[in-house]
């Protein structure tokens, strides 16, 4: 079973919803309100866990609305892992397109055949270390200042806010420069670095897991060495992992691209109930 098509479908829906929500609100339909920092769907509050964590640290209290908004994302993350990043996040959607553009330029302009997408950054320990330090530092800094500073650099939140401003006022705010900046960096110097190494939302979501959480399972007999010559799973992984052995890594976003890419069907999703 190929997951790619479904993944692009959900990503597109979420991306379009970013514009649809403010549009509905312009026509005074308030069933869904908010941006991807925090949404309200028919009375159910859902907020980015990082946002809640920061509001907790910055204000020194845990209000009831905050707590209730955290329930749904934690529940989803416990069952399906970091599925927000892999399947829904509008920034990864853009990041994927940027990456295919980068590969296209490499092939057509620089005549490089092999995708070597992530070879130069393939060290999950370093990436994990950087992103956890970043999250802890950011939260502590926000707590000291009394301002949720990580909100200023939350890519999906900014994208969603810009979409809202665009729909409402046909303009953008200066935060769009931040997104353009990281897109530019991903296109040139640091391929796919933001989601791997910095994004605070993804970092916190990857911590919310149990042994039964959905994950990629490798059926390889010798999980420490590559089980085929192509190693196509490592080439497609947006997080720069080597799925044949690092499928349980905290970085994995359950996007399923490695499962699609494996020519020998040695990777599959594993979750509660599967054999």
């Amino acid at each position: 079973m190929k997951y790619g098509r479904f993944r692009i479908a959900t990503q597109t829906v979420v991306f379009l919803l970013m514009f649809a929500i403010p549009l509905l609100n312009v026509y005074e339909l308030y069933f869904i309100t908010g941006t991807y920092y925090a949404l309200n769907v028919g009375g159910l509050g859902v907020a980015d866990p990082v946002v809640i964590l920061q509001a907790m640290f910055a204000s020194g209290q845990l209000t009831l609305p905050l707590l209730s908004a955290a329930v749904f994302p934690i529940f989803v993350a416990l069952i399906m892992g970091r599925v927000w990043c892999g399947w829904l996040c509008p920034y990864l959607f853009i990041s994927d397109r940027v990456e295919s553009l980068r590969q296209f330029i490499r092939r057509k302009v620089f005549k490089v055949d092999h995708p070597v997408a992530n070879r130069e950054v393939q060290n999950s320990f370093r990436a994990n270390f950087i992103r956890f330090s970043f999250l802890i530092t950011g939260t502590a800094f926000g707590g000291m200042l009394g301002i949720p500073v990580l909100n200023y650099i939350s890519a999906p939140g900014i994208l969603s806010t810009e979409a809202m401003i665009f729909v409402k006022e046909r303009s953008f705010s200066i935060e769009i420069l931040f997104v353009l900046g990281i897109v530019g960096l991903q296109l040139t110097l640091l391929p796919r670095f933001w989601c791997r190494m910095f994004c605070p939302t993804g970092t916190l979501l990857s911590l919310i897991r149990s042994p039964q959480t959905l994950r990629v399972d490798s059926l390889s007999k010798h999980p420490t060495t590559p089980c085929c010559k192509e190693i196509s799973c490592s080439d497609v992984c947006p997080m720069g992992l080597q799925p044949y052995r690092e499928s349980r890594d905290l970085l994995c976003a359950n996007c399923g691209q490695c499962i699609d890419a494996c020519k020998h069907d040695r990777l599959r999703f594993y979750s509660m109930g599967s054999a």
């Binding site: 908010g34 920092y37 925090a38 907020a47 509001a55 910055a58 009394g146 949720p148 909100n151 939140g157």
Partner: peptide, 14 residues
């Protein structure tokens, strides 16, 4: 307010 406001802009939308 500065600590609690998460800039979700929901107030602005409604």
């Amino acid at each position: 307010f500065m600590a609690l406001c998460i800039r979700c802009n929901r107030c602005l939308e409604v």
